[in-house]
């Protein structure tokens, strides 16, 4: 589904990612684990095209998308839920969803489907997104990303900064997305949850992949060891 080869990227004079290679299988979940500042979010931004890589290629469904602008990657089937429950704060929750559905033939149905997935959002559709709680905003962010009916979802720490009562709900959603046949590239700090969701894992340390493998016996220990170095 997604194949990243030799990706090097950064901001200004700082290089954040060094020669990163990884793959997300079709119909599967791959997780990227690492400490704060390891380059996990930068990796997702480069995959989506919000950050232009200095070297390397990004193949999506066999096609080279390295030079495409982000909005065209989204039209090809990529979707992105950034870190920190981001939304368009002055738009209502409904507008946040309609914005993405606009121009689609099934716009109304797509918005309805998104609201069916997160029934809690139905009660707050008229409220400005900036006034929603963190959990609601994260549900809104995932709903917004799914409206484009993506093939691959880039999820950046979906449970970070969310009140504990909603964390389990969002984790269930993520597990459900993986099971529904959507490919997911998940960035996580919670090792146990990441390994429950993902078939493949990659450990990112200071912008380099230092360890990778498949889910299974010993995987959690291997990851924790890689992270403690």
């Amino acid at each position: 589904m997604l194949e990243i080869t030799g990706l090097t990227a950064g901001y200004g004079r700082t290089t954040v990612l060094h020669d990163v290679s990884l793959a997300v299988p079709g119909d599967g979940v791959a997780a990227v684990l690492g400490h704060n500042g390891a380059g996990k979010s930068t990796l997702l931004r480069a995959v989506l095209g919000l950050l232009r890589p200095r070297a390397g290629t990004v193949l999506f469904q066999g096609e080279d998308i390295t030079r495409l602008p982000a909005h065209r990657r989204v039209r090809r089937g990529l979707a992105y839920v950034p870190q920190g429950q981001q939304s368009f704060p002055q738009l209502t929750a409904l507008e946040n969803l309609r914005l993405v559905a606009d121009g689609r033939r099934d716009a109304r149905a797509a918005v309805d489907e998104a609201l069916d997935r997160f029934p809690a959002l139905r009660a707050v559709t008229a409220r400005r997104a900036g006034l929603l709680s963190g959990g609601q905003r994260q549900q809104l962010a995932i709903a917004r990303a799914l409206i484009t009916r993506p093939r691959l979802l880039l999820l950046d720490e979906p449970t970070e900064g969310i009140q504990p009562s909603v964390v389990a709900e969002i984790q269930e959603t993520v597990l459900g997305l993986g099971a529904s046949g959507l490919s997911v590239l998940l960035v996580e700090q919670h090792v146990a949850f990441a390994l429950r969701a993902a078939e493949r894992y990659y450990v990112l340390e200071a912008g380099r992949v230092t360890s990778s493998g498949s889910r299974g016996e010993g995987a959690e220990r291997a990851v924790r060891e890689a992270l403690s170095v």
């Binding site: 919000l50 602008p69 982000a70 909005h71 039209r75 981001q86 939304s87 002055q90 993405v100 484009t148």
Partner: peptide
């Protein structure tokens, strides 16, 4: 309005 409020997120949501 979306582009004004959050340019990157708008681009990431498929808006040119």
């Amino acid at each position: 309005r979306a582009v004004v409020q959050h340019r990157d997120l708008a681009e990431a949501s498929g808006i040119a």
